[in-house]
Simulated assay, not measured.
Amino acid sequence: MKISLVLNGKNVEALISDDRLLIDFLRDHGCLSVKRGCESSNCGLCTVFMDDKPVLSCSVLAARADGHRIDTLEGLQKEAEEFGAFIADQGAEQCGFCNPGMVMNAIAMFRENPDPTDDEIREYLAGNLCRCSGYEGQLRGIRAFIEYKKKGGAS
C-alpha cells in the first residue's frame, strides 16, 4: 500500500505493508526519538503528534497516517529545546529514556493549557512511564518553565 504524509514538515511517500505500525515507519525514516517501550500503549515512549494531537505510534497503523501531518521530537526541536533545559535543570532526565515522550506530552499540554494546575500536569504525564525520577523532577521543571514563560521568557 502506498501512503503519503507530511513528516516533520517534509512530504514523504512510501510503500508499506498493511500491518506496518507507525512507530516502525517513523524509526525507518530516521525518527529515533520515537521509542518502543511496552508494546501495549502504556508507557508513552512512542508519543508523536498526528495533526497536532498526541498519539501513541505503537498503536497506530502507518496506513492511518496517510494524508496526515506527523511530528516527532526531531521536528519540534526548537519548541522542545527551551523546555528540555528546565527538565534537565531539575535532574528529571536521569536515564533519558522517557524524555522524548514526556517532552511531547508536555508540549501538547502547553499548547492546550499554558497555565495548568499541578493536578492537570499530573494528568497529562499519567501515560508516561518514568522509572528513575518519580515524576517530581518533571513537575518541578514544568512549573519552573511556566513561571519563566509568565515572566516573558522566549517564545
Rank of each mutant, 00 (worst) to 15 (best):
M102S: 14
E112V: 10
T117N: 04
I142M: 08
R64Y: 13
I142Q: 00
Y135M: 10
L26P: 08
D19C: 14
R69A: 12
V60K: 09
L32T: 12
N11A: 12
A63S: 09
K2C: 08
D89H: 08
K151G: 02
L139Q: 03
N105P: 01
D28F: 07
L125Y: 06
P54G: 07
L45C: 11
E120L: 00
G91T: 07
E147C: 01
N42Y: 08
G96V: 14
G37N: 05
K2G: 08
C58M: 08
M1W: 07
R122V: 03
C58V: 13
A62Y: 05
C130V: 14
S41W: 11
G101R: 00
N11Q: 13
G153E: 02
S33M: 02
F49L: 14
L32A: 06
I3Q: 11
D89V: 01
V60R: 13
L21V: 12
K149M: 04
F25K: 00
A14I: 10
E147N: 05
C58K: 10
K149G: 04
D89K: 10
I107P: 01
V60D: 10
L56A: 15
G152W: 00
I121H: 04
P114L: 04
L5P: 02
K149D: 02
L125N: 07
S4A: 13
V12Y: 06
I146L: 03
I146M: 08
K151H: 06
F25A: 02
A108Y: 02
D118W: 04
N42M: 15
S4N: 13
N8H: 04
A106H: 03
